[in-house]
Design a binder for these strands. Structure first.
Lengths: 245, 245
DNA sequence: ACTTATTGTTGTATATAGTACAACGATTTA
DNA sequence: TAAATCGTTGTACTATATACAACAATAAGT
């Protein structure tokens, strides 16, 4: 596959800047990506000129620039799934009193593209733009179970309940497909349970996943049946609406 | 100023994709940016490989990819101004019943980095990531009046009330500085009035603007005094909090 | 359905543009 | 004050991006 090296390097730098906790130095970029210090300097200058990076004049370090926010808005406002799903997310929150999420597949991970906060919890910090692994989240399992993605070779662990065995995961996915919803039972975050169901387009292809998440104390195992009924029903309603579009 | 050409081209393509209403073709990119068709193809392939662009296999056209959403989230969650301002935005909505916005300077424009919707209006579609010109928005005028940016040479018109004369604008900015808040009286959108006030950091430098906006029928001219009092007071309170950080 | 026109992709040769190296000035650390 | 580290900017060099052209695949037109 042919690539443009310098562009690829620039994009890798953007990724670095996104993953860094605070601003990072030229040399940090150069050593991390194994490129020349001078080259890194030029690349970051170019990114700055277009607003994708920003230079902190005090520390002479770089961070992400405001241009990326513009791009993100442009993408999100143009997603038909997001627009259509909005009222369904609200409905889900009303009916379950839990936080509702909408996710799609993006580069082998779940990308949270919308969220409606529960009235109970003040702030659940899984904002729009958050990405999580597929094998240990309800939204991700949905994408796996209905064939939007295939099981990744590396199943990293997050909690004691995280499924790291591919065969066990395969069984879990089959169960998921049979019952129509996926369950994340504290497999990604301690104390958090999530339930999710697939959203299909007019051809019957999975285009996203819709779900709720809440503290394990409230999303008790004996309530899963009742809650999953709501999730499945609303995901189904959304799918129907997506088909008539 | 030295630049990396191919990276610059890639970033320009991202900008094009953001501004386009729907997906665009390789040739459209090539003609717009005056580059070779083959080069454009390679650039877009590279952007795709890193998730910054996405190819619609059916139409063979490209649109923005999900990676930009991740980047945006990374930037927004790391902005101290945004975190600090959140409760003040809510307070502003509570006290005025209008939609509250938080903006910063980005590439010679105002970038809306946060928003709290009014309980009255169902959906004001100025979401996070929206950019607007400085000279005809309340947030923008604040940034101009307190020296975050200088008056652009091109003052494009949006409504009949848009100020396009630099001298008139200069006078408006002086008035703004004197009274402590900026007013956008249907200068950007017909039927919309906005009031905004500056947010300073610990050195007294403007780092952003805080304001409200609502329908002209509700934000009447005889209520400006009362409303601007709230905006000025809360922006002041936010500035104080920013200083103690 | 056939032709015609347009599109996207992939070779290949050239020369441009990105890279490495080094030296400088500016900061920060000791 | 000295030493070390960092970012920037020159300058060769060669690697790489580019233009051109040919091809395949789709779309449009007759």
């Amino acid at each position: 596959m042919r690539q443009i090296q310098s562009l690829a390097r620039g994009l890798k730098i953007l990724d670095m800047l996104a993953n860094a906790h605070d601003s990072i130095s030229i040399t940090a970029v150069a050593t991390e990506l194994q490129i020349d210090k001078g080259s890194a300097s030029l690349l970051l200058q170019t990114l700055s000129n277009y607003g994708f990076a920003e230079k902190d004049m005090a520390t002479r370090q770089y961070r992400l620039g405001p241009a990326v926010v513009r791009l993100s808005r442009s993408l999100l406002t143009k997603m038909p799934l997001r627009e259509t799903a909005k009222p369904f997310l609200h409905q889900l929150v009303r009916e379950t009193s839990e936080c509702a999420h909408l996710g799609v597949l993006a580069q082998g991970k779940v990308l949270y593209i919308d969220q409606v906060e529960s009235p109970e919890t003040l702030r659940v910090n899984a904002e729009v733009g958050f990405t999580a692994p597929l094998h240990c989240t309800a939204l991700g399992k949905v994408l796996l179970a209905w064939g939007a993605a295939s099981i990744p070779e590396e199943l990293s662990g997050y909690t004691a309940r995280t499924i790291f065995d591919p065969e066990v995961l395969q069984m879990d996915l089959e169960k998921t497909r049979r019952r129509g919803y996926a369950l994340d039972d504290e497999e990604f975050d301690y104390g958090v349970r999530c339930i999710a169901s697939p959203v299909f387009d007019y051809r019957g292809k999975v285009v996203g996943a819709l779900g709720i998440s809440g503290p394990a104390a409230r999303v008790r195992l004996d309530r899963i049946g009742e809650l999953s009924d709501r999730v499945v029903a609303i995901a189904k309603a959304l799918s129907d609406k997506m088909s008539f579009k």
